[in-house]
Write a protein that binds this DNA or RNA. Structure first.
Ligand SMILES: [Zn+2]
Ligand SMILES: [Zn+2]
Length: 783
DNA sequence: AGCACGCCGACT
DNA sequence: GTCGGCGTGCTC
């Protein structure tokens, strides 16, 4: 008996292992295996992707599976299929893909550790660096970490140092942190005096083992437990637990009568087979009620539900709202959970003890059985695209999963992506429109101010100043949206044109007044501020606006305002961030200056005026979606106003006649889509083409010539599948010290895309060994 | 990816 | 000679 095993190495290949007699019974697809691998037979964690009687591989090369530790698989048959699809579409390997999604708590790997014996003079630079690193670290360091942190031939140098007796090595296994809990059991029966002590012993007589958590619930303090342990009466031990199951009946905590539009959508979804629905309608039209009701119906039929949400939307508020439908028996899944929590949620999925899962894009692969519905909320959100390998799009792969699981998928949005909207028209998706708002409160009136004509004080136009003053006078709140944090873009020299840029990235630095530093928003590197041109000593001029600069101007203009900044910088610390948000809700502030963070997820009841300060900057960026993003920012941000009582919005723009601005203001979304779809068609952008962004990241720009000539050879081979433009410097030509060259390939059909990507992946591997590159299929960021 | 091996210039 | 930097190839 043989098992095909996928390992966490970046080659698109599985490995064949023999299954020993004693493990045949435990053999199952999707299960975790521990196998020896490589020359050193280091133990590695793998996933069984297939089981076979025969194999082509030479029997003398085949090794034996070391262990199958679990009684259950970590991937279902369906999620294994999904992983294969992802690997195929996004130029990734099956092993790479599986291990990208699998929580690291499941991984047991053996590796080499290095430690210092004595420090002596050595000649080689790499050897010196290694000794210094070990001296600084004190203790054992993984060989791989050395290799990552030190440049040069680390492996060679380590070998030499071992031979010289300066360092030592040992092999060790990293143990996984499966969810565990402390338990207590009785060692001997002895009479004790204390009432609490007696109680604990009584409890232990009844039940052999009780978890410390549970003991504490009956009013016994931890020092009591400790004292009995010291006396040798009880014993405390760690025990692996799979999960703590909270069984709860689903009850109608919310009695909501759906409108007729909502009811229609609900019926369509709950009667769905494996269609993709596009559920759309303006803010406040009750989209969430529809999908939560549908989800509850599906759960009542005994099936499970997966709800995907963008990163910033997974707030306690949202969780509470979902809990109001399902009780506490829901599981969240996102990157802020700990290793143990992630493994625990994963197990809940595979065991089927929880029926409702809500998470970010990484929740896509949860091994949920009997999936009856997948929801993708805010389907247009860019955070659904993974930015590391595998560069998958969770919305598109959710649709794929729906087909594999044979269940309906609902895409939800107030402003669908142009691609999804178009597919709603062609019938690929079934459109479900909610035309009316639920409440009587009208949508905010949007006033557009022309920034190139109107009088301004700083960034504030006269109409905006008046509106802000009136709003805070009434005791209500104002949100000022600006799409950048920091103060302003660092200076440029009017004499010689010098611009303060990051040394590693070709982007202007942003001045952050609060920390008095220049910060690169691409790589995060900080610099001391410069005020004079280093070349000609002219005083630098500053331009651009960030939240900090808006805040400073607002303080002068509105001395009566209670102003707060709400951006990544101010909510970095989660505890302080949560406090900030609750303070805003309480009305402690009346002028909120925020970025994306402020325009998503949170409802501020007293907010009645929203302003988009620079609505159409970014409109001219070389990205075919820039217009769509302007449109979405305006609709989403202005939609924050007047959730609870009528509100208004002001949009400041340089070109008010720009369709993205005009149609957002008039709430004539269908006209925006019509024009945008027309433009996409003319210029052959998605949904009319299937792009791949090929990006080289070169250490030296001088390497470009050889890369380019090799690329031109490849170009010919790719031409049956892609339109291949020449390799050119990326719009941001340098990031983190690497020179970026890109080619924006376009396939005319999905079939060509998949075939072409496969060819591209294989050819690139052969042609560009030792060169860093990225194959971004259907990219979201083009800069 | 992680690791070994083999090639080649530089330096005892 | 041989040390150490670097490119190449293999892993069931
Ligand atoms: Zn100058
Ligand atoms: Zn930078």
């Amino acid at each position: 008996m043989y098992a095909e095993v996928a390992l966490n190495i970046p080659i698109d290949k599985t490995f064949v292992y023999r299954v020993p007699e004693n493990l045949v019974e435990k053999l199952e697809k999707g299960k975790r295996v521990i196998v020896p691998f490589g020359r050193k037979d280091f133990l590695k964690t793998g996933i069984i992707t297939d089981i076979k009687e025969k194999t082509e591989v030479n029997p003398s090369f085949i090794k034996e599976i070391f262990d199958i530790p679990d009684s259950f698989p970590l991937f279902t048959e369906n999620t294994l299929k999904l992983a294969e699809e992802i690997a195929k579409r996004y130029a990734s390997g099956i092993g790479e893909t599986l291990f990208f999604f699998l929580p690291s708590g499941f991984i047991i790997d053996e590796s080499t550790y290095i430690y210092l014996i004595k420090d002596e003079k050595v000649k080689g630079k790499t050897e010196r660096d290694i000794l210094n690193f070990l001296k600084e670290k004190k203790g054992k360091v993984k060989l791989v970490t050395l290799n990552r942190r030190i440049k040069g031939s680390v492996y060679q140098a380590v070998k030499n140092l071992i031979r010289k007796g300066l360092i030592g090595k040992e092999e060790a296994i990293t143990y996984p942190s499966l969810p565990s809990k402390k338990f207590v059991s009785l060692l001997k029966e002895e009479t004790v005096r204390g009432a609490k002590e007696k109680l604990l012993i009584e409890l232990l007589k009844e039940k052999k083992e009780i978890s410390v958590d549970e003991i504490k619930k009956s009013g016994i303090k931890s020092h009591t437990i400790k004292r009995l342990q010291e006396k040798g009466i009880i014993e405390i031990f760690e025990k692996e637990i799979l999960l703590d199951i909270k069984k709860q009946e689903l009850e109608d905590k919310r009695k909501i009568t759906l409108t007729s539009d909502q009811k229609k959508a609900f019926e369509k979804i709950t009667n769905g087979k494996n269609e993709t629905f596009l559920l759309y309608g303006v803010t406040g039209s009750g989209k969430m009620e529809v999908y939560l009701n549908a989800a509850r119906e599906i759960v009542n039929r005994g099936k499970s539900v997966l709800i995907l949400v963008p990163e910033l939307l997974l707030t306690p508020e949202l969780r509470a709202r979902v809990e109001s439908y399902f009780g506490e028996n829901i599981a969240v899944f996102h990157s802020k959970l700990s290793k143990k929590e992630l493994t625990s949620q994963w197990i809940k999925a595979i065991k089927g003890t929880t029926k409702v899962f809500i998470g970010t894009r990484m929740a896509l692969m949860l091994p949920i059985k009997d999936l009856g519905l997948i929801v993708v909320d805010e389907e247009q959100d860019v955070s659904y695209k993974e930015q590391q390998k595998p560069l998958y799009h969770a919305r598109d792969m959710a649709i794929k999963r729906g087909k594999i699981e044979n269940c309906p998928v609902v895409l939800v949005s107030a402003t669908p992506s142009v691609e999804s909207y178009y597919k709603g028209i062609t019938g690929e998706y079934i459109p479900l429109e909610l035309k009316k708002r639920i409440s009587e409160i009208p949508l905010p009136y949007i006033k557009v101010v022309n920034l190139s004509e109107e009088k301004k004080v700083g960034i504030f136009s006269q109409p905006l100043i008046t509106a802000i003053k009136n709003t805070i006078k009434k005791g209500e709140q104002v949100l000022l949206f600006i799409n950048r944090r920091g103060f302003f873009s660092s200076g440029f020299c009017p004499e010689c044109g010098f611009v303060a840029e990051c040394n590693d990235c070709a982007v202007p630095l942003v001045y952050h007044k609060s920390v008095k530093k220049l910060i690169c928003h691409i790589c995060g590197k900080t610099y001391k501020p410069v005020y004079r041109c280093p070349k000609c000593k002219t005083k630098l001029e500053f331009k651009g606006y960030g939240t900090e600069r808006v805040e400073e101007e607002a303080k002068v203009l509105f001395p009566e305002g209670k102003i707060i900044r709400l951006d990544q910088d101010s909510v970095k610390d989660p505890i302080r961030g949560a406090k900030l948000i609750s303070d805003i809700k309480k009305g402690k502030y009346n002028i909120i200056i925020g970025t994306q963070i402020a325009s998503k997820g949170h409802n501020f009841p007293k907010l009645t005026l929203v302003a988009v300060l620079l609505a159409d900057v970014g409109y001219l960026l070389p990205d075919f979606r820039s217009s769509e993003r302007v449109f979405q920012t305006i609709v989403h941000t202005t939609g924050r106003a007047g959730r609870f009582k009528p509100g208004a919005a002001i949009v400041q723009a340089f070109e008010p006649e720009n369709p993205a601005v005009k149609y957002a203001r008039e709430y004539r979304f269908e006209l925006f889509y019509k024009e945008e779809i027309e433009a996409r068609k003319i210029f052959n952008y998605p949904p009319f083409s299937f792009p791949v962004l090929l990006e080289f990241q070169l250490e030296r720009s001088s390497k470009f010539k050889t890369v380019e000539s090799k690329f031109n050879v490849l170009k010919e081979k790719l031409s049956p599948y892609f339109n291949v433009p020449p390799l050119t410097p990326a719009p941001i030509p340098k990031i983190a010290g690497r020179y970026r060259f890109t080619s924006f390939l376009r396939a005319s059909s999905e079939e060509n895309l998949i075939k072409g990507v496969n060819l591209l992946k294989n050819e690139m591997q052969l042609l560009f060994k030792g060169i860093r590159y990225k194959i971004d299929v259907e990219p979201v960021y083009l800069l």
